[in-house]
Structures are given as C-alpha cells and as structure tokens.
Design a binder for these strands. Structure first.
Lengths: 219, 219
DNA sequence: CAATGTGAACTTCTTCACAGCG
DNA sequence: CGCTGTGAAGAAGTTCACATTG
C-alpha cells in the first residue's frame, strides 16, 4: 500500500517507530494480537492516534479483534523503509561515534556501518567492530566506493559544515547530525538533527521554577 | 517577565534554545543588533515564528531596529532556566555517558555533573573528569547527598525502568533518558527522551523510495 | 521608515464519536 | 458485540498582514 503522494508528518513517523518497537516487544512475549488501546498505552499515545497514524498507510486491523502483532510489525518495517539495508558512513570516531557503533538496535534495524572516518592520526588505522578507521581526507572516494547512502556526523562543531558539504558531494541522501550546528544543505538531502543542548534545555525550561541553587533571580 | 500560567509548547522551547545558540554566535561576531528575519534565517525558522515565540514571554525588540543581541541572549538564558546551575547525576558510564561528560556545551549551559554511577566493578573507582565512578547500589543516598536535581540515564535497556524508579525515589525532578524504553514515572517528574532508533527511522522513512539495495520489495 | 508585536486567517494535528464490519 | 476506520469537530500551531512605534 504505502500511500504515494500524501505528506506524512514527522510526528506520525515517530509514532510508527514507537509502535514498531512495541510490537517487537509484544512479539517477544508471544502476544498474537493487540488492540489500538493497548498499543497506545504501551507506546505512550492514544488509541485514536494509533488508528489515525496507521490509517495513512492502509487498514491493518480486524474489527472486533485488533491488530495481528507480527503482520503489523512487518508492515511497519516496510513502511519505515527498514525491510532493506542502509549503508551508513560514520564521520568522527569520538565518543558519540563509538556509542553508535556499539548500539545494538543499529544493526538490528538494517543500518550497516560500512566505513568510519576521522582526521586524528592517532585513530586512523585502528579498528572498531572490525572496521578500519580511515583518514577523512579520502572521504568522497571512500563513500562512493562503499556505496554510502546515509552519513552520521559526529565531528567537532567547527568541522561540521565542511564535512556536510563533502558527504553531499559524495552522493549521500540523508544525514544524521549530532553537532550543534544548523547545516546548509541542498533541499534534496534529508537532515535529521540530534541536539543534546536543546534536549537539556527543554528539561531545564520545564524545571526552571524549582528550587534555585545558582545565582539569585534577575528582574 | 517569564509569563506565569501560560502553556508553552515544546516546539517553542526548542526554538528558544536555537535562538539562544544563534545569539551566542552573533555575540561572538560582535554583532550588536539582529532582526527577527536574520535570527530566523540563522536558526532555521521564520521571522514571524521568531516574533511569536518571543511574544509568549514579553517584548524584547525595538521597532525599526530589531533585537539587541546581548540583552536578548540574557533574557533567553533566564527564560530557559540557564541562569542557574543544575546538579546532574549520570547513571551509566558507557559510551553515551562519556560523550556527555566530555560535551563542552554541557558545562557552558550550567549543567554540572556531580556524580557518575555504574554497576560494572571494572569501572567503579575510575575517574572521569575528576569525578569518581560510584557503585550504582548506593544511588539513592549518593544522589541525595549531592543534591542531584536532574538524572541522565544511559544504561542498558533492561535496567532502565529500575534505575528510573530509583532516581525518582532519590528526589530527582527531571530525567534525560537515552535508552529505547518508555518510562513509567510519576507525572510530576519531567522526562525527555533521546531515542536514536527513532531518529534513524525518521531518516529511513524519508529516504525509503531511493535505490533499494537490500532484499527485494515485498507486496 | 524599518521592523516589532499581535489579532485574525489559515493550516495542521488531535480527539471525538459512531457507522460498519469481522 | 467489540474494535477498527474515518469523517467531522475541536484544539493547537503557523503564517499573514498591518497598525504601531522608536
């Protein structure tokens, strides 16, 4: 089915990702069938939201019964583009990069890290998970040679835009960026931004009225 | 000003965080004044959006002129709760944890990591940034002793809920969770969830129609 | 007279509620 | 008879447009 023209909101896609994870849990527990209500409770949305999110892509449930766990799980994998394998190039062999390489869900979801690049001579030549860390100077050729489709940028702030330009030149179609920098990128390349400063500040904002420890309040 | 009762959307707060970063850049460049238009271009929103976001908290601009960079920066720090210092407890001394400890913006924004905990005897006793890694068994006492207000959870999936229960018992008011697990937590505790699987799947979805490499298409 | 601050218009997202189907 | 799928209602968020002001 996988509706063609329709514009799907970012939120809806995030929901699908959560439903997929929940279905994988349910599958592990041997549950054959689940209602929109229960799926919602587990995933943290509402029953109506579950049905609406799914309705953009088709009708997967049985009235009076609910959804069959495994078939819906497969549908969602398909919808999210996970029933294929993605060739991922990682730039930046620092802590965040290493966290990703060891992240178990990464591989389970079809994301294969095919190359790791860094500029630090200390790191170049080492192996992570069997993958040799290469000198970033050869990025374009290496990415093309390995057929990289998706780049993960975990490099220092000041290097980020330059690296982004280069991975785009190397033909990458999507970027996951961990640096606190807004990238200037051609429209056809999809960027997703994980910004730890923003995440912390969202928390800080939510708690800002609580017991103040630091400097006295202004105004 | 910091309007009292009004409900501020998550998106608006995220925008403020981006504006703050942009203002810090502008300040570094010595720019004294900025229009909503320019701020928007740099932060990736629109001029109208900038004005609306700010209007929830007061009037900070001068008509015909724009916003004074440094005063607005200070306002935003205040609004986001960054003009104070937050005592942060980190649970999980793995890769993600270490990435956070070394993250420079962390400290710059007033987030002080005051304790690090892990369950691995190999790690306990080591020092990170001068902070001794403690045995997680003493979490509650340690968190209380150090006045931890905000917990960062970077522990394996299966341990996450238990650790969450314990940090709540220890009086924490906010949690930043990196594990792919929806936490069951009392309403008054604020949770923010950074979910790498979701971030990857959002990218995967956006690119799902591109050249398929993996298994042949289903249906 | 340039650029803010803000109601009003518009658009998008969420929730409701119920007909219809298994 | 229970639960989905979905239009319609309602809420929330975004963009428009302009009167206002330093």
């Amino acid at each position: 089915v996988t509706a063609p023209g329709r514009k799907i909101s970012d939120t809806a896609v995030r929901h699908l990702s959560l439903y997929l994870r929940t279905l994988e849990e349910l599958r592990g527990e041997g549950t054959p069938t689940v209602s929109s209500r229960e799926l919602a409770d587990r995933a943290g949305t509402t029953a109506a939201q579950v049905r609406k999110d799914l309705s953009h892509f088709g009708s997967f449930g049985k009235r009076g019964l609910g959804y069959s766990v495994d078939p819906l799980r497969q549908e969602l994998r398909q919808i999210l583009g996970l029933s294929r394998s993605w060739a991922v190039g990682l730039v930046g062999a620092g802590r965040i990069g290493s966290a990703l390489v060891e992240y178990p869900n990464f591989v389970a979801r079809g994301f294969r890290i095919v190359t790791v690049m860094d500029r630090d001579p200390e790191k170049i030549g080492r192996r992570w998970n069997g993958i040799r860390i290469e000198d970033v100077s050869g990025l374009e050729e290496r990415f093309r040679a390995m057929g990289v489709q998706l780049a993960v940028l975990a490099v220092p702030e000041e290097a980020t835009q330059e690296v982004a330009d280069r991975v785009v030149r190397a033909g990458v179609r999507g970027i996951l960026n961990f640096a606190p920098v807004r990238l200037r990128i051609p429209r056809e390349v999809v960027v997703n931004h994980v910004d730890l400063a923003v995440e912390l500040e969202v928390l800080s904002f939510a708690l800002r009225e609580d017991g103040v420890t630091g400097s006295g309040k202004r105004r």
